[in-house]
């Protein structure tokens, strides 16, 4: 019985959190308790860090990941000498196609979803008389106390969750066919050479 209840109480995320905290503690111990403390004293750098925390949503994050993926992944595939030249070429073409398709759809859908959530998460002071669907504008606004920054992050989170739901379909309807078309386009160009 004890083991059954322990399985029931087992939460992957909490176990994972504990694991991750333990690794962090080990890493911090390895760094040691330095006597001199690092301080970010440049006001521009501090402002920039604050801005990133406030404004970088999952959409921008996807864009950054896509751009950096284009700079690294094709070269990693190109240096994979364990496969024959033909497979290597297909692999590079598909990697580039996948990054372009995934980044374009991922960024666009996330951005649109966050915008849509924002339209229905208004504060009473933000609702203007000439607005359409006035009754629905507060539909997604939380009912507990929050700061402006918390509300912005809440909109990003809700928008990202909505985007993930939509992407279950668009991954098959847009991402995959677009990847296929781009792979064939890039592979075809290679064949012509």
């Amino acid at each position: 019985m004890a083991s059954i209840s322990s399985i029931r109480n087992f939460s992957f995320l909490s176990a994972y959190d504990k694991f991750s905290c333990k690794i962090t503690r080990v890493a911090l111990d390895a760094v040691g308790s330095r006597e001199k403390l690092p301080t970010i004293s440049n006001p521009k750098t501090v402002k920039c860090i604050d801005w990133i925390g406030k404004n970088l949503s999952s959409a921008e994050n996807r864009l950054i990941l896509g751009a950096s993926a284009l700079l690294s992944q094709p070269f990693i595939d190109a240096s994979n000498k364990d496969v024959d030249a033909k497979t290597r070429r297909y692999s590079i073409c598909r990697t580039v196609a996948k990054i372009i398709a995934g980044t374009l759809t991922g960024f666009t859908i996330r951005k649109l979803c966050i915008k849509s959530i924002d339209a229905f998460t208004k504060l009473p002071s933000e609702i203007k008389p000439d607005m359409k669907f006035k009754n629905l504008r507060k539909l997604l606004t939380p009912t507990i106390k929050f700061s402006a920054e918390e509300l912005a992050q809440y909109k990003n989170t809700l928008g990202t969750i909505l985007a993930l739901g939509i992407m279950v379909f668009t991954n098959f309807l847009i991402d995959a066919p677009l990847t296929k078309a781009l792979t064939n386009l890039f592979a075809g160009k290679g064949d012509a050479k």
Partner: peptide, 29 residues
Amino acid sequence: KNTILTKYGSNPAKMLIYTGVLGWFLSSA
């Protein structure tokens, strides 16, 4: 709504990690 606000309103990076993992899984499928 309130749970999302309290869990991720003050911790955007945590949300990015969880939704990122789910996104990769769906995309790979």
